[in-house]
Design a protein around this nucleic acid. Sequence first.
DNA 1: CCATCATTCAATAATTACATTGAATGACGA
DNA 2: TCGTCATTCAATGTAATTATTGAATGATGG
Lengths: 221, 221
Amino acid sequence: MSIRNPKLALYEQFAIVAKALGNPLRLELIEHLAQGSRSVEALAAKLGQPIANISQHLQALRRAGIVSAERDGKYVRYSLSDASVLSAFAAVRGIAERQLAEVDRIVRDCFEARDDIQPVTRGELQALMRDGLVTLIDVRPADEFALGHVPGAVNVPLGEVKAWSQGADPGREIVAYCRGPWCVMSFEAVAALRSLGHSVRRLEDGMPEWKAAGLPVEMAA
Amino acid sequence: MSIRNPKLALYEQFAIVAKALGNPLRLELIEHLAQGSRSVEALAAKLGQPIANISQHLQALRRAGIVSAERDGKYVRYSLSDASVLSAFAAVRGIAERQLAEVDRIVRDCFEARDDIQPVTRGELQALMRDGLVTLIDVRPADEFALGHVPGAVNVPLGEVKAWSQGADPGREIVAYCRGPWCVMSFEAVAALRSLGHSVRRLEDGMPEWKAAGLPVEMAA
DNA sequence: CCATCATTCAATAATTACATTGAATGACGA
DNA sequence: TCGTCATTCAATGTAATTATTGAATGATGG
């Protein structure tokens, strides 16, 4: 069978990919899959959604070539299937951040109030870590930490931040990171620690971006 | 008014941007706007669509922060409003090319048959042009050529390729380019010239990518 | 070969996207 | 101020998307 309008046919395919990115729940799935591969059940639990709904969205992502599935025991593990997924996400995020007034408003209302201090870049963090000047904490849940984290980071899940900080030296600077640039967890950790008198900054973005930049990743023992 | 779930609220905004990219007609509009700013009427003519339809799609793109509009005399000129639009497009295209079997099929059926020769990269082309080894032709319509083209390129719109080739030295290699990597025009020009005994190759992609790479652009006098 | 259970499918209803038509807007030039 | 004309809006019908429910599937492990 030959194709009448090859250009339109190609653009329809490209549109399938973009359309699959065009849903907030699917974007959140992508963020979680960027931390590592996961079962349907695990993703449903993380997002607080019914399993059937998550399964349906995962299949939409799979039809678009964004994720791939493989069986692992009783579970089906989904993972991102293409390195460009994160760059597509980043480009879309950048457009929204720069062009949409609503994003500005949300950021001002919910994020900037909590942390108006300039975040640490990846390069800065590497220098600080090399010189042993800061304590780096990974505030994600333990299972995500186990799938890969920044070398030298300590896993302090959000719920344990307060308890952990009691044994921490208040004179030593802390850097916190989590899943990505708009993951609320590191904002909340920074707010909590700062109210306890610690000097804290956020890493500019999270684990997936660190990995995507080709920087070393440490796995759990 | 404060926001209950800031992360979801942000992801809804990101989804608006991605959703706006999720339509073949809008992707084609983006390709044309990547050549330069255009009126609604001009875009409707290029795509062969009713004006009201194009206006509607342009407003969807504008709501998503992808294009911006400004009045110019009687016309409203639309243009891309963010540099990341092309990188988002490129990332989506890359995912589709690598992951979707249907794209493979279309390319094999419609493009590879016409040109199975490795395309010229931008770097190669610059070297060839510097040494004066090739004739570079821009096969886009004259109005698009006027809005910006590769320095040294000759404008030979697709319909005039055959006539133009009669005066061309068959011993000299030709490189052709057009709007972008999947614009059919350069494929057709290559096929036409090759059947006439010329040695022709395509540039790997088109004008927008050339400009996005920061390479010099020449405007019509 | 069977029981289990993670995952998928199917059916529903509500919402949103799309192309098309014709009318309304509103800025420009006279 | 008024006519012109590019653009936008509004209304329509059709199609696609979404969340939800419950049933079906099918691979695994015994």
